[in-house]
């Protein structure tokens, strides 16, 4: 598996707190091509701690590409240059000996930096709290097979529901728009029969909170889809647009 180590020059964003001004710090490292980029950072941190220096603050959890915690911008790409791959699954063999790598936090006004590479993505939770659910109480559900759902519909809903909520779409978008994320959440429910009763209420409430949070508007560059680690399609944005426009023009509620 292992070949020779790679010698790399890293420029990593350091920022003490949300209030301080950050800058890049340079590191020269020699790393195994089998290591993931996060394992490379682990190793740097271990060295820093040994010298009594503050390690680089970055987040990760499952390291299997599903929890959505990690999400560094590597050479301008959220989750790095490898398509459909989360940061934790980005292995150093994808880089060449002598490469220079810039590692930055995801940038967007609603995602302020907390420390170094850690950002605050709680805006995503707020959007989902606004309506990304089906209203019913535990215990009141009918037998699961009472609700028939075609395989095609279930698959399309799952395609949207696979979103890991990492924020790469916002990070990739030049407008810091969250529409791929919100579109995926809206779509998951609006495709399913269970989601129909609240379909138009949901989309209006979620979009309102999204706008309030300060995300930009979508200008259909589709950078989000290109950088999404799960390959979520912009079709979901179209579905959200359709539902939203329909809701505004057809629904009987005057204000939502």
């Amino acid at each position: 598996m292992s070949n020779e180590n790679l010698s790399l020059t890293l420029h990593i964003w350091r920022q003490e707190s949300s209030k301080s001004v950050g800058s890049f710090e340079e590191f020269k490292v020699s790393v195994s091509p089998d290591a993931s980029i996060l394992e490379m950072l682990d190793e740097i941190n271990n060295g820093l701690e040994k010298e009594g220096k503050i390690p680089i603050a970055f987040e990760s959890d499952c390291r299997e590409g599903i929890c959505g915690t990690c999400g560094l911008v590597v050479n301008g790409h959220p989750h790095g240059p490898l398509p459909k791959t989360a940061t934790c699954q980005l292995h150093m063999r994808n880089f060449k000996n002598g490469d220079t790598i810039y590692i930055e936090p995801m940038r967007a006004k609603p995602f302020p930096v907390i420390k170094d590479l850690i950002i605050d993505r709680s805006a995503f939770d707020k959007i989902q709290q606004a309506g990304a659910f089906i209203s019913f109480n535990t215990g009141s559900a009918p037998d699961a097979n009472v609700i028939l759902i075609s395989k095609e519909t279930a698959d399309a809903s799952l395609d949207a529901a696979e979103c890991i909520g990492c924020g790469a779409c916002v990070a990739a978008c030049k407008n810091a728009s969250a529409m791929l994320f919100v579109g995926a959440k809206v779509s998951q429910f609006s495709l399913l029969p269970q989601g129909q009763p609240e379909r138009y209420k949901r989309v209006q409430e979620m979009v309102a909170v999204m706008d309030e949070a300060g995300f930009g508007s979508c200008t259909n560059t589709y950078a989000c889809e290109a950088e999404c680690p799960k390959g979520i399609s912009v079709t979901n944005i179209a579905r959200m647009n359709r539902d939203f426009i329909k809701a505004k023009f057809i629904s009987k509620e005057v204000e939502v």
């Binding site: 050479n75 301008g76 810039y102 930055e104 940038r107 030049k174 950088e227």
Partner: peptide, 9 residues
């Protein structure tokens, strides 16, 4: 971003 990779996406 320091490196602009938008032409690739």
């Amino acid at each position: 971003y320091k490196i602009n990779a938008s032409s690739e996406n």
